[in-house]
């Protein structure tokens, strides 16, 4: 499942995408994110599956604008810490 969590600000809509089919539940992203927006657990959007996958924390979904904003510089953009930390390449972003 491709899970998109996003926000809208003055310049458009932005999304973090987690591909739960690629995610192995290693939790590297949980440690890598400076704003700690990830968690690993049962996939709450796929209740019939037992696999543990990463997702954006429920209480972090409303504040992505402020949590993800600092990792979205205007230029000289380094790779996002969450994307860089994910070995299976399950995390991508839309900006």
């Amino acid at each position: 499942m491709k899970a998109n969590y996003g926000y809208r600000d003055g310049s458009g809509d932005y999304f973090i995408e987690i591909d739960t089919d690629l995610c192995d539940g290693c939790a590297d992203c949980v440690a890598a994110c400076p704003a700690s927006i990830f968690e690993v657990g049962e996939d709450e959007n796929d209740p019939l599956s037992d696999d543990e996958v990463a997702s954006v924390k429920a209480d972090g979904r409303k504040s992505l604008e402020y949590d993800c904003g600092p990792c979205k510089p205007v230029r000289d953009r380094p790779e996002l810490p969450c994307v860089a930390s994910c070995k299976p390449g399950a995390i991508s972003h839309s900006w």
Partner: peptide, 12 residues
């Protein structure tokens, strides 16, 4: 009916 992809935005 299994979700293969979804998109949610912050609440508004």
């Amino acid at each position: 009916g299994k979700v293969t992809r979804f998109l949610m935005n912050d609440k508004c």
